[in-house]
Simulated assay, not measured.
Amino acid sequence: MLGKLFKFLFIIAILGFAALVGFAYVGPEIGIDFAPDRQEIRMPVTLQGQ
């Protein structure tokens, strides 16, 4: 019984990974953009020392 459960969970994990990889490849083709919004951030930095 426990062996069947582990086998089932292993198969679900493999199918989930395959679905995630497939979605990553197909996503841009169907209009889903995974790239983050780019913006420049400037912050003044004061260094202590000399």
Rank of each mutant, 00 (worst) to 15 (best):
M1Y: 13
M1F: 15
L2P: 00
G3L: 03
G3Q: 08
G3T: 13
K4F: 06
K4A: 15
K4S: 00
K4T: 04
L5T: 06
L5S: 12
L5D: 06
F6W: 06
F6P: 01
F6Y: 13
F6L: 11
F6H: 11
K7A: 00
F8S: 00
F8A: 05
F8Q: 04
L9P: 02
L9M: 13
F10T: 03
F10L: 01
F10S: 15
I11H: 01
I11M: 01
I11N: 02
I11F: 00
I12P: 01
I12G: 03
I12S: 08
I12T: 12
A13V: 07
A13N: 13
A13Y: 14
I14Q: 12
I14K: 01
I14V: 14
I14G: 06
G16L: 05
G16P: 00
G16N: 05
G16Q: 10
G16W: 11
F17Q: 01
F17C: 04
A18Y: 05
A18I: 06
A18G: 08
L20N: 04
L20E: 13
G22F: 10
G22Q: 03
G22R: 01
F23K: 04
F23T: 05
F23H: 14
F23A: 15
A24D: 15
A24W: 05
A24C: 10
Y25V: 04
Y25G: 00
Y25I: 13
V26N: 05
V26P: 00
V26G: 10
G27S: 14
G27D: 09
G27W: 12
E29T: 11
E29K: 08
I30L: 10
I30F: 03
G31S: 08
G31Y: 04
D33M: 08
D33K: 06
D33Q: 14
F34T: 12
A35K: 07
A35M: 12
P36E: 08
P36F: 13
D37E: 14
D37I: 09
D37T: 10
D37L: 12
R38I: 06
R38A: 09
R38T: 05
Q39R: 11
Q39N: 08
Q39S: 13
Q39H: 14
E40F: 01
E40N: 05
I41R: 07
M43L: 04
M43Q: 09
M43A: 08
P44E: 14
V45M: 11
V45P: 00
V45E: 10
V45Y: 10
T46F: 05
L47T: 04
L47W: 04
L47E: 04
L47I: 07
Q48C: 09
Q48E: 12
G49S: 11
G49C: 05
Q50R: 15
Q50F: 10
